[in-house]
Design a protein around this nucleic acid. Structure first.
Length: 575
DNA sequence: ATAGGGTTAG
């Protein structure tokens, strides 16, 4: 009998089946003690065909639930839309002196990770130690992962360091955690250390490392990982292929990304297509991105909201205004509902084309609440086209929303300055002083012979700092001959003109380019990654540098690639 | 009284 029930449980495909089996157990008087009852409960609590609230009903009918019965519910809650509910259930277990085991803790920790509940996770950590639950590798890895996912990377590292025994998943969890927690250089360091210690990276390891390379633009290291993947046949895994494509794209090698995309031995999924469309978008390859969007449909993968966003983004970067607008209009017929980001994208598209009225109408008529990004976009476009009324309206909205930023103030004050409305300029500057307008610090990375160099604005910490600044002085001198004048109105500080020029001169991307000029062979391309968008002044200067030093310079900013060559940029000064 | 839990791309 027990065997038959087991077999039936495996075939359960609906809540109705579960109910039938439960009814069987009840009517035959076996419910309270049948060995498979817990399995039934678990099935109901966690499987997609189950129902958590019905599982709770079953649970309440159990006279003396076992730890495993409790675990089924806790696990179900951890996977549910209300993961934090797992925590009070856990507390009840402790209060009732119900034995908790490693599994209970594991499920509750998972719940904390999903809820980003760092405090609860650390409390649980103490409980695990206090109760004396045997913390095996799996549980400790879960613990490490929760710390990492809820933002305490140092805590995660500590758990890792104190683990008596580690396995590949423990390394993977920390590498991924560091990569996803914006500490890609540490992720790479750990990845290298892992190899030094003789561990063999698996598909999960390379995902974490590739993600770190993408963020850093570390193409040499990324290529090495790709070679390893091919040799070890890890490229049978779509997820791995997608990560490779993304890595090449973010390191500036769209062609390599495309060749991986084109020669995949496994089936492409929607993420593959979206990654490739986004890659083309970042390179301003608008038409190719649109081609791919229609190809994916033919391949039986239907575009989703992300596909459309990527394609719209491609239209933006390529200046394909009409194409973008009609793509946006076609979304609804294709059954994909535009979200705020899609609206943001068309507003940007129209704004750049100077169609401010239409952009504004879209914001006003959109079915959801327009976030600050939309008004900022409109404000930026108003600046470009010198439309004072529109700019005032957009900044008023931003002030009302309490989300006006430093950059917005600068834009507005520049618009007034262009109209010589000095009183208004003064008023805006005054308003700025009364607010906390802290900027995100800008920094740039550059890879030379597989080694990463990081620069922040005005940085003197680099070992070659003196040569770098000497090179910048040389650049400053040589570009004057090309009619260059600094756009100092972008600098906010109340300092003299010459100092303002210096603030611009020592932007992190300029430092990185100067370092590239002195540390790489003449004629080779220089590649830089920046965390923010490139500024107009740097853009102008780097164009000139590419001409006078005869170098291709590739700058990846927050949104796209700029390829500077012979005094021109691939973005056609439109970004 | 069985086993079950951890790391994973846009």
């Amino acid at each position: 009998m027990a065997f038959r029930l087991e077999a039936l449980l495996q075939k359960c495909a609906s809540l109705f089946h579960i109910k039938q089996l439960q009814a069987h157990l009840i009517t035959t008087g076996q419910f309270q003690f049948h060995p498979s009852r817990t399995k039934l409960l678990e099935l109901c609590a966690v499987s997609p065909s189950g129902d958590l609230s019905f599982a709770c009903n079953i649970f309440r009918q159990i006279g003396t639930p076992s730890t495993n019965d409790w675990n089924a519910i806790v696990r179900g809650l951890a996977h549910s839309s209300v993961p934090t509910q797992a925590i009070p259930w856990f507390r009840t277990m402790l209060r009732r002196s119900q034995r908790v085991d490693a599994l209970t803790c594991s499920f509750v920790l998972k719940a904390c990770a999903r809820a980003l509940a760092l405090f609860e996770a650390s409390q649980l950590h103490s409980q695990i130690v206090r109760i004396g639950v045997e913390a095996d590798v799996l549980l400790q890895t879960t613990l490490l992962d929760v710390y990492a996912k809820s933002g305490d990377l140092d805590g995660a590292h500590k758990v890792f360091d104190e683990m008596g025994l580690r396995d590949i998943a423990s390394w993977n969890a920390l590498i991924s955690g560091l990569a996803q927690g914006n500490r890609p250089n540490e992720a790479m360091a750990l990845f290298n250390k892992m190899k030094e210690e003789g561990w063999k990276p698996n598909e999960v390891t390379v995902l974490g490392a590739l993600s770190a390379c993408s963020q850093l633009g570390a193409s040499k290291q990324g290529e090495n990982i790709h070679r390893y993947i091919v040799n070890d046949m890890l490229d049978k895994n779509v997820i791995v292929c997608n990560a490779v494509i993304d890595m090449y794209a973010k390191c500036g090698f769209v062609d390599k990304a495309y060749s991986v995309f084109n020669s995949m031995s496994c089936r492409k999924n929607i993420i593959t297509w979206n990654t490739m469309i986004m890659a083309l978008a970042m390179n301003g390859d608008g038409h190719k991105a649109l081609d791919l969007l229609s190809q994916m449909d033919l391949d039986g993968v239907h575009p989703d909201a992300v596909s459309y966003l990527a394609a719209l983004c491609a239209c933006n970067h390529a200046g394909l205004v009409e194409e973008g607008v009609s793509l946006f209009d076609s979304m609804t017929e294709s059954g994909v509902k535009p979200n705020v980001k899609h609206y943001g994208s068309v507003v940007d598209l129209l704004g750049r084309a100077g169609r401010l009225k239409e952009a504004c109408d879209i914001i006003r008529s959109m079915p959801m609440f327009p976030d600050e990004v939309l008004w900022q976009t409109l404000l930026g476009a108003s600046k470009t086209y010198g439309n004072v009324e529109m700019a005032e309206m957009a900044s008023k909205k931003l002030v009302e929303m309490g989300s006006i930023s430093c950059g917005d103030f600068v834009l507005l004050s520049n618009i007034y300055a262009a109209q010589k409305r000095w009183d208004d300029v003064g008023r805006v500057r005054e308003a700025m002083k009364n607010r906390d307008v802290r900027k995100v610090p800008g920094f740039s990375y550059m890879e030379v012979e597989g080694e990463l160099h990081k620069f922040v604005n005005g940085d003197h910490s680099h070992p070659n700092s003196r040569e770098i600044y000497a090179k910048l002085d040389e650049i400053k001198f040589r570009i004057k001959g090309y009619g260059y004048t600094a756009e100092t109105d972008l600098v906010l500080h109340d300092i003299g003109e010459e100092d303002k020029e210096n603030v611009l001169n020592y932007h992190s991307e300029k430092l990185a380019v100067a370092f590239g000029l002195i540390s790489t062979i003449d004629g080779t391309p220089i590649q830089v990654n920046k965390n923010l968008r490139i500024c107009v002044d740097c853009h102008t200067v780097i164009k000139i540098i590419s001409k006078i030093y005869n170098r291709e310079i590739i700058v990846r900013d927050r949104a796209r690639f700029h390829r500077f060559n012979q005094g021109l940029c691939s973005c056609k000064d439109y970004w």
